[in-house]
Amino acid sequence: MQFNFNSAEPLYLQVAEQIMEAILAKIYSADDQIPSTTEISRSYHINPATVLKGMNLLVNQGLIVKKRGIGMFVTPHAYQKIVEQRRDQFYQQRIIDLIKEARRLQISKDELISLIERGFNE
């Protein structure tokens, strides 16, 4: 995990993002235990309440689950949920802008598809 203490993005969001990235990279799979709040807090010198706030975001999203007295674990469908969430973000943040720019440049749908295929083949 890497945290940017000078970033405008709050640390608790960075904690949540780092854990989601680890799930997406399959560092943590379904039912795997993730590092505890204390472990992350000590390793990266982050306030335990900040770490917990980030983890609670993931609990609320159904990506991790608390097992009282044992720790936090990745839920069975966490990977797929993250992939679906990221695909939606990709569409909203990149594809829509790509299409707008293509229209501004008078690139047809067929030309755009051809450019995408060329990118995949390179």
Rank of each mutant, 00 (worst) to 15 (best):
R118V: 01
H77I: 09
T37H: 01
I107K: 08
A25G: 06
E39P: 00
T37I: 14
V65N: 11
M55L: 15
N60H: 10
K109D: 10
N56T: 09
V65K: 14
A22W: 00
T75C: 10
L112V: 06
S108T: 15
A25M: 12
R42M: 10
M72Y: 15
K66Y: 07
I27M: 09
S43G: 05
Q106K: 15
I40M: 05
S114C: 04
V15P: 00
Y79P: 01
M20G: 00
Y91K: 14
I40V: 13
Q80I: 05
N121D: 09
G119H: 04
E111H: 09
E21I: 13
Q106A: 11
V83T: 10
R68N: 07
Q93K: 15
T75R: 09
S7G: 02
M20S: 01
E117Q: 15
R42N: 13
F5N: 12
K67I: 13
I96D: 04
M55Q: 12
R104V: 04
V59D: 06
Q89V: 02
S43K: 14
I27C: 02
R94K: 14
I46H: 03
N4A: 02
G119W: 01
A102P: 04
S7R: 11
N47E: 13
A102G: 09
E101F: 09
P48R: 13
K26V: 03
L57C: 10
R94Y: 11
I64L: 11
Q93P: 02
I95A: 12
L58E: 03
M20R: 06
V59T: 14
L57A: 04
K67D: 07
L105D: 11
M1G: 07
E21F: 06
A78Q: 03
A30H: 07
G54S: 08
A22N: 11
V65R: 14
V74N: 10
V74G: 09
L13I: 05
D88W: 05
A30S: 15
R68H: 10
S36F: 02
S108N: 06
Q2A: 03
A16V: 02
Q92S: 11
H77Q: 13
V83H: 09
L58F: 08
D32I: 02
H77T: 14
E39R: 10
G119E: 08
T37F: 02
I107L: 12
A16S: 14
Q89R: 13
A8Q: 11
H77E: 08
A16I: 04
Q14G: 01
V83C: 13
V65Y: 03
Q18S: 06
L58S: 02
Y12E: 08
P35M: 05
A22P: 00
K67E: 14
I64W: 07
K67Q: 15
Q92I: 03
